[in-house]
Every structure is written in structure tokens, then in C-alpha cells.
Nucleic acid binder design. Structure first.
Length: 278
DNA sequence: CCATAGACTCGGTAAG
DNA sequence: CGTTACCGAGTCTATA
């Protein structure tokens, strides 16, 4: 799916358009995605003031002033498309599952070919105590920044590899398969290391590199592999800055000597430089 | 509680 | 060339 930088890019695009507005119409083209769509979504949400658009981990949150939050997850292939209603807008395609029409004349389309995405409707004040927010780990770029000691303590209790630990949303929220590999390369740490073998100094470097790679990816509008695009239709650009992801057999950008290795950890591809990353 | 495997889903690409 | 097999931006569930 879109990982943290992609969801953040979408969040930043939706925020100025939607806050202070409302949906005039919500058209669902099928009853479900990963889960059934919220019951009576259009009746419950249309003409209600949208007070806040935010992101938590890889979730987009739309707060309504009458106390409900629409939770929007993009799954693996989800995409948000913003079109101005005054301009020529394209007809709905076969994977355009939900279409929102806004009070300021925008058409917002949720397209998701693989349908791993979902929409859920929760009371805003119960969000933090409900699954999955209940167990979600800290935000790497949050207002209260994730501290090294907290991360180090969390890693210390786990015997899984550091790569798998970075994918565990309970330990740190928002990283996915791309940025986990990229951050470990930047930190010069082997993805095969046990999470509990990292020294405090290594954890500190890793956390800094996680934050750096996420910030740089957000600046680039995220990474486009296949389905993801920014809401205005542009691709993301961070894929051109990958150092390891999808670069098997290409030479490491650090030592310029070792071909990048691809391994599989818990069924997911990991890319790294066997020489630079210890 | 932790760790692992399998499931969901479908279009693109590699393989034959 | 048409067919098939495999793969994956994610996360949930069942099982040990």
C-alpha cells in the first residue's frame, strides 16, 4: 500500500480542499471493499461539516463536526483522485469504488483494483480505544517525536529480525516494505540482525535515518511503483531515489562494488548491501 | 504475550 | 503466441 509518505501526500492534498466543506453526495459502486462499507454512509455523512483531515500511521482520518470519523485505508493498490467538477472529468472506471462530491465542486474518487482498502466509520472520541488504533505504535514524525529509548526498549523485547520489526505497526507506525529496506541501508544495518541485538547507538542512527527517508519521500510526493499516484494525477518521485528497493544485482550506491542482494523475510522481499550493512 | 504461515485480491510480468 | 505461474505498496486471522 501506500506507506506513510504516500498517505501523508494524499492527506496534505485533501486537507485544504475538504476542511470546512462537506460532501453533497457519496456514491458507492459496490457494497464492500475489504470490509462492508459503513452502513448508510451517505445518509450519515453528507451535508455534515468536515472539521479535520489528518493521518495516523497509514490511515487517513476525516473528522466530521457531528462526532464521527471516517477512517480511510488504501490497502495495497488504493488511490485517491481529485478532479474539479467544472473541468472535464473522466467516467468512473471498473475500480472506482466510491465517489465523493464536495460542496466546493470537487469529485474525489477512491480507486482500488485489489480492494484491500477499506472505509470505517467510528465515533471520534472512541477512535484511540478501538482496533487497530489501540495497538498502533508511535509516529516516527509525530509532534511528540518517537524517542530512541522507547524504540530501543521495544526492539529489545523482540527476537524477530530488525526488518520485520520495522514492519510491525505496534513497534513503529507507518513504515512498509519499501521504506524499511531503505532506512536500514541508510543506517548501514543488516536487515537480518535480530531486533534485540541492536545497540543503543545503532538504534539512534536507525531512528534518524527512518525519519530522514520518510521526510525525503514526503517531499518527493511518495513513491510510485504501479498504482499509486498523487491526487492530482502526478506520479510520486521518490522511486528514483531508491538505494536498494527493487535494485537487485545493481551496484550499491555506497561502496559502488557490491551488487544489491534480495532475500525473502516472512514472505516479503528485502533488499540490502551485504557489505555495507552489518 | 510472541512468532509464523496463510488468506484476501487481481493485474502485470516472467516463464514455458 | 496463448496460457500459466508467480508476485506484491498491507494487515488480519489461525495456529504453535
Amino acid at each position: 500500500m501506500p506507506e506513510l509518505p504516500e498517505v501523508e501526500t494524499i492527506c496534505q492534498a485533501l486537507k485544504p480542499l475538504l476542511e470546512g466543506q462537506s460532501f453533497l453526495k457519496i456514491q458507492a459502486n459496490r457494497p464492500d471493499l475489504r470490509y462492508p462499507l459503513p452502513v448508510n454512509m451517505e445518509t450519515v455523512l453528507s451535508h455534515k461539516l468536515i472539521s479535520l483531515i489528518s493521518r495516523r500511521a497509514k490511515y487517513l482520518l476525516l473528522d466530521f463536526s457531528h462526532g464521527l470519523t471516517l477512517i480511510w485505508h488504501l490497502g495495497m493498490s488504493g488511490r485517491v483522485i481529485i478532479e474539479n467538477l467544472n473541468a472535464l472529468s473522466l467516467n468512473s472506471g471498473p475500480h472506482d469504488h466510491v465517489v465523493f462530491i464536495t460542496s466546493n465542486n470537487y469529485k474525489i474518487t477512491f480507486r482500488d483494483p485489489r480492494r484491500f482498502g477499506f472505509l470505517l466509520l467510528y465515533p471520534t472520541n472512541q477512535l484511540k480505544s478501538l482496533h487497530p488504533f489501540k495497538t498502533l505504535g508511535p509516529e516516527p514524525l509525530g509532534d511528540i517525536p518517537l524517542g530512541v529509548s522507547v524504540l530501543h526498549a521495544a526492539l529489545k523485547r523482540r527476537t524477530i529480525s530488525i526488518k520485520n520489526a520495522l514492519l510491525d505497526q505496534r513497534i513503529i507506525a507507518g513504515l512498509g516494505n519499501i521504506y524499511a529496506s531503505e532506512a536500514l541501508w541508510q543506517a548501514r544495518l543488516s536487515p537480518r540482525r535480530g531486533a534485540n541485538t541492536l545497540r543503543l547507538k545503532e538504534t539512534k542512527i536507525l531512528l534518524i535515518e527512518i525519519q530522514n527517508v520518510l521526510r525525503r519521500a514526503i517531499s518527493a510526493g511518495g513513491s510510485t511503483l504501479r498504482d499509486y499516484a498523487q491526487p492530482n494525477g502526478d506520479t510520486g518521485y521518490f522511486q528514483y531515489s531508491f538505494n536498494v528497493y527493487k535494485r537487485e544485482h545493481l551496484l550499491c550506491n555506497h561502496c559502488h562494488f557490491t551488487p544489491i542482494t534480495r532475500i525473502v523475510q516472512s514472505g516479503r522481499a528485502t533488499y540490502y548491501c551485504d557489505k555495507c550493512q552489518q
